[in-house]
Design a protein around this nucleic acid. Structure first.
Lengths: 184, 184
DNA sequence: GTCTATATAGGGATAGAC
DNA sequence: GTCTATCCCTATATAGAC
């Protein structure tokens, strides 16, 4: 509270004007703020019309900036690892579910089957979180960089529609090879 | 301190008899204790004479028990993610380096080249840590189980000496296909 | 080695003036 | 809305008796 007061330039008492429920409410607000930022800058772009590979490298570039090459901790992950997990159970869960869903959308757009895309997206978020842990454990950005270098190819292995997206085709357009069965 | 006192049955003052340096010393002792446990139960066994695949599945079984299917946080990881990182920098670093080194040994014993083994070991620890984060985020053991199910095959892909180890061959024996160049 | 008692600091939060 | 002043409580740590 003291540090927040100092950082905001407000007195401690003034903080309770904005957050009557105190500390818990402030923590929730921070988590919401982080989630909103990710929604706008990471999750939404994963569902854009850009080529899937570009969406992935863009995500990794954004993460690299946001986490300062792995040296800044991920708040929802920290909450998940701590005792605050109980208090913010649903918010934490939604954050990671949303991330996986966005990335999964990117992968299905690349031509991967839905179940494969889902699994790979889940594994990718897992690996990103692991890279953040090790990057901080080693106080060294190479772990994060190595992960970021490998991830795009791993995610898109076997995806065959990638060329389709280089021309910014409309989303969900039937693939060129699609066959319409006409029933009458 | 109150909770530690209650848990140990000692008065708070008595704790300072064993840990004159107070809280920091206690935290360091806990970290050392965890590290010692991992050294004996996880890292050492990774360098045993058992077949590499068995060492890996054994490691994963031990982790599954220790982390209660991903529901218990990894203390060195928590320290790495928190501000305590500075205070325990070297201990945290050694913990993860040792883990990677042990697993790397397992993989070189399986016939993988040293650089491949090193990278895969690093990636595996990364993924395990990521799985722990997501397991707690989702409050759900499936993430951890899925990781544990996939890891052995991923780690040993392309390893060709696995049969050699089913008969408990001595470590570091030259591979059957090795060619000795004789310079004389 | 363990206790009771105590010191000191800071955290979270509220009251009420302005 | 922001402030000063203050409340109560807990955390960390020490003193000194037993």
């Amino acid at each position: 509270m003291s540090r927040i007061a100092a950082a905001t330039g407000l007195g401690k008492a003034s903080l309770y004007h904005y957050f009557p429920a105190g500390k818990r409410q402030m923590a929730a607000a921070v988590l919401d703020s982080v989630t909103a930022w990710f929604e706008a800058n990471l999750f939404k772009p994963l569902e854009s019309v850009h080529p899937p590979r570009q969406r992935i490298t863009s995500m990794l570039a954004t993460l690299d900036r946001y986490y300062d090459n792995g040296q800044v901790a991920c708040l929802p992950a920290l909450f998940a690892m701590s005792n605050e997990r109980e208090m913010f159970r649903e918010a934490i869960r939604q954050f990671f579910l949303r991330w996986v869903a966005g990335l999964s959308q990117t992968l299905t757009d690349s031509g991967l089957a839905r179940d494969i895309a889902q699994r790979r997206a889940h594994d990718a978020v897992e690996r990103i979180q692991g890279a953040l842990v090790l990057s901080r454990a080693f106080a060294n950005g190479r772990t994060f960089e190595a992960m970021a270098a490998e991830l795009p190819d791993q995610l898109l292995a076997g995806a065959d529609r990638s060329t389709m997206w280089t021309t910014r085709a409309p989303r969900f357009a039937p693939p060129p090879t699609a066959i319409r069965s006409h029933a009458g």
